[in-house]
Design a protein around this nucleic acid. Structure first.
Lengths: 218, 218
DNA sequence: TCCTTAACGCGACAACAGTTGCGTTATCAT
DNA sequence: ATGATAACGCAACTGTTGTCGCGTTAAGGA
């Protein structure tokens, strides 16, 4: 769906299917830009419930069928928006200690989940309706967690947490309570939540709770 | 919507509202039973994607409009199923120590989230489409967390965790990673996950991570 | 038993989602 | 510049979702 560059390097030999010769530039690029902008604006102004293909097409000044053919449904639109947004140069802050780093991270998550309307919450909701959006969201989060491994590496270097700490398990333990309370349980926001969850995870990490047994079976 | 009692304060002889005189028994009860059964069977056999009002009505041998009038949409159906299922006499197991209790609890959550198709996952998905289902799910979880407070009380009594421990925060810390990995991130199931998350939360709790400061500033 | 009316069945309808065929535009290679 | 055709616009079509009016059935009080 997304305009990924399929490099079919076989030039000359024509045994396989002749590359359909995409057209990424000019009008197509303008249409894509206008449609993705329309998705973002519609999402912020009217929320996910009114994010229909028809509304996006009308706002972008493009015909319905164009959107259906290129993106298939709302999930495809959000997946494209998400992939486009994943290429920012985001990096976790360095506050000097593990609990501080995790708190800073959690505060960003908290802000993203409590803004209204929340684009993040809309994407999560969409991931239950569209496999495409679910894949895009998983890619996005994998990328974010990979970048956050630097936080754990710094903590190991400082001696705050033992070597061999499972970075992903620690990061999930720190951030999961936010998603659980704010997205699933829909508890009213509590500003103390980010710090609490971060300190609890940091404490458990320094106690070795996320360290793998040296050489387990299999 | 729900049959809320509209109190029309007409001053005069008629003090009490002309209670519409519901009919909970007989045919209505039979219809409700057959429809809710149809929801459960359809959900298990064909998953959430094919859980439409029409399919449920057809399977229950009831007319479409009957379902639309009494339950309004799929979310309403699931909310009714959920409320009916919330009255079981569920209680958390008592294994003798906090980490064991939380592991046992997490194993139940793990089993519920990894069965296929998962009724729990279907209800979570529905909560993003229907406010009614979202409310029912929140009530269900509130009830479950309330019952689990006994686990924390036992741990305090044994001296495993300090008095004043925030039971809900501890329980969320223990269970949230499961929901995060299996529902949101959709990571392949790992049987070690329940125990890991439980031990990490129990360790943080005994270190006082979920204890409120006695009288913090406003 | 009889009467009122809540709840259900039925058919018709409107609104929306999504598809298809075909003509038109404009991109890109030549 | 010029031709082939990818991508877009347009209109008509199908299928699903949800609603409405009205007649029928049966629950529950007298």
């Amino acid at each position: 769906m997304a305009p990924s560059e399929e490099v079919i390097g076989i030039s000359g030999s024509n045994s396989t299917a002749p590359a359909p010769a995409r057209r990424p530039g000019g009008r197509s690029a303008r249409v894509r830009e206008r449609v993705l902008d329309a998705v973002r604006v519609q999402l912020v102004e009217h929320g996910y419930d009114e994010l229909t293909v028809d509304a996006v097409a009308a706002r972008a000044g493009v015909h319905r069928t164009t959107v259906y053919r290129r993106w298939r449904d709302v999930g495809g639109l959000l997946a494209d928006v998400l992939d486009a947004a994943g290429d920012d140069g985001w990096r976790p802050r360095d506050t000097g200690d593990l609990a501080g780093d995790l708190t800073a991270l959690n505060q960003e998550v908290y802000a993203a989940l409590t803004e209204r309307p929340s684009v993040t919450a809309a994407l999560i909701a969409a991931s239950f309706r569209s496999a495409e959006a679910a894949d895009a969201l998983r890619r996005f989060w994998d990328d974010r967690y990979a970048r956050c491994e630097a936080v754990v590496q710094r903590a190991v270097r400082r001696g705050e947490t033992p070597a061999g700490t499972d970075a992903r398990a620690l990061l999930v333990a720190a951030t999961a309570p936010l998603y659980h309370e704010l997205v699933l349980l829909r508890t009213p926001p509590d500003p103390r939540l980010p710090g609490r969850a971060a300190r609890a995870a940091a404490g458990a990490a320094s106690a070795g709770a996320f360290t793998e047994p040296p050489a387990g079976g299999a």
